[in-house]
């Protein structure tokens, strides 16, 4: 269902949700449930793909916190891989004449937010709870493959990870996948980053499409993990 569609023939059904651009009284109307938007365009394309999950109900942060269902203990001076999930938000983007406009973002997941750190210096994050090695679910949750390295000389317990989603590269095909690296620097500090591993088709990044400048995409977790 994800992909690029011609404006004239854009009509989709994802799970029980119908969306598309329909002709009404000589106008083109984008419709998803009760949401309606008039589209004034002769030609162009519509891109439907999963995007960075920080847009609903409105964008207030650029951080995603994933809490594990059970803590994970990492050996000193070691590397490992885990598979988590992340919430899927689907964007409908109008594309044409070398520019993009986000028409709509929707999700089959109820959004929730949390605070990482203290109220003065911390950050508000999109909250998501995931099992370690959890399976993805179509249109609901994607797979996040995380490479963890512990460069400290201590055993560390990890219960949550925080990522800056402005550098998130999401790929879709058989499933929705993103990749990240986590470097544990000490018992209290870790550095997280989304990385690019080409697999399947790449989603259009919303924060690149919106021309929001990205200043670094690494996040330093300094209030524990």
């Amino acid at each position: 269902m994800y992909g690029v569609y011609e404006l004239q023939n854009f009509h989709l059904k994802i799970r029980d949700l119908e969306l598309g651009i329909f002709e009404e009284n000589g106008f083109r109307i984008y419709r998803r449930g009760d949401l309606k938007k008039v589209v004034v365009a002769e030609s162009g394309r519509v891109v439907v793909n999963p995007v960075e999950p920080v847009n609903l109900p409105k964008n207030i942060t650029r951080f995603l916190l994933i809490e594990f269902d059970k803590p994970m203990v990492v050996e000193p001076k070691s590397n490992g891989k885990i598979s988590l999930t992340f919430p899927i938000e689907i964007a409908v983007i109008l594309a044409g004449k070398k520019s993009f406009e986000v028409l709509d973002v929707f999700s089959f997941v109820e959004p929730k937010y949390t605070l990482y750190g203290d109220p003065k210096n911390g950050v508000v994050c999109r909250y998501w709870r995931s099992e370690i090695f959890e399976e993805e679910e179509d249109y609901v949750k994607g797979r996040l493959e995380v490479e963890i390295s512990n460069s400290s000389s201590e055993w560390v317990e990890v219960e949550k990870l925080v990522f800056d989603v402005y550098g998130m590269k999401i790929y879709y095909g058989e499933s929705v996948v993103a990749f990240a690296e986590v470097r544990i620097l000490s018992e209290k500090v870790a550095e997280t980053e989304f990385v690019d591993r080409r697999i399947g088709k790449k989603s259009l990044e919303l924060y690149t499409a919106r021309k929001i400048p990205m200043v670094g995409k690494k996040f330093v977790m300094e209030w524990g993990f």
Partner: peptide, 10 residues
């Protein structure tokens, strides 16, 4: 708890 902007933590 159902409200998205009521923070999970604290």
């Amino acid at each position: 708890e159902k409200h998205p902007f009521v923070l999970k933590h604290p």
